[in-house]
């Protein structure tokens, strides 16, 4: 009665490349489920966040319930269930960065972007997040934009960083056009 009937395999929501990567990933480990966390992260990289469809697709690929997937995903702070900006700016304010101006840096980003912690700019280009130590303590203060590190920063470098991503986005847009 309660367990849902296994449904027909729906088409995947992922790109052919990612889909192929996932096919390989579930084979890679002694146990299929070991692929779960990387899959979620890679899916998020492609889709932007863990939408219901992502959760369902990943659950099906691994053969676990969606509840299991949510339960695991919600544990990890890099995984999110809501979209972020194209460039997610993660400012470390943990002790070493704090001692060297992490909060001043964070405030500068807030001002420049006009958003708060976990906020997204109206154009969807940037989101801002205050994060825990990112492993760059000796080069503090440090941030990550998506997966890129920027270290030994000071607030005055904030506009330049933002500009570089703006032009990157623009270049990409033109390349697509």
């Amino acid at each position: 009665m309660s367990p849902k009937n296994m449904k027909e395999e729906p088409l995947t929501i992922f790109s052919p490349q990612l889909s192929a990567r996932f096919d390989a990933l579930v084979q890679k480990y002694p146990v299929k489920r070991s692929a779960l966390i990387p899959m979620l992260l890679y899916a998020q990289d492609e889709v932007g966040y863990l939408s219901d469809a992502v959760v369902a697709d990943v659950a099906r690929r691994i053969g676990i319930t969606e509840l299991d997937v949510r339960s695991v995903a919600s544990y990890y702070s890099m995984l999110r269930f809501k979209p972020a900006g194209k460039y997610n700016i993660q400012v470390c304010t943990n002790i070493c960065c704090m001692l060297r101006g992490g909060y001043e840096l964070f405030d500068r980003f807030r001002e420049e972007l006009g958003v708060e912690h976990k906020g997204i700019t109206p154009d969807g280009l940037f989101s801002l997040e205050e994060v825990e130590c990112i492993g760059a303590c000796s080069w503090a203060p440090a941030i990550q934009v998506n997966y890129d590190f920027h270290d030994e920063l000071d607030p005055d470098r904030v506009p330049g960083i933002l500009d570089s991503y703006r032009s990157q986005a623009k270049a990409e847009g033109e390349a697509h056009a």
């Binding site: 943990n94 002790i95 070493c96 825990e132 130590c133 492993g135 760059a136 303590c137 000796s138 080069w139």
Partner: peptide, 9 residues
């Protein structure tokens, strides 16, 4: 991930 640590990096 221990704050203060960035050697494995």
């Amino acid at each position: 991930s221990e704050p203060g640590t960035c050697k494995d990096h």
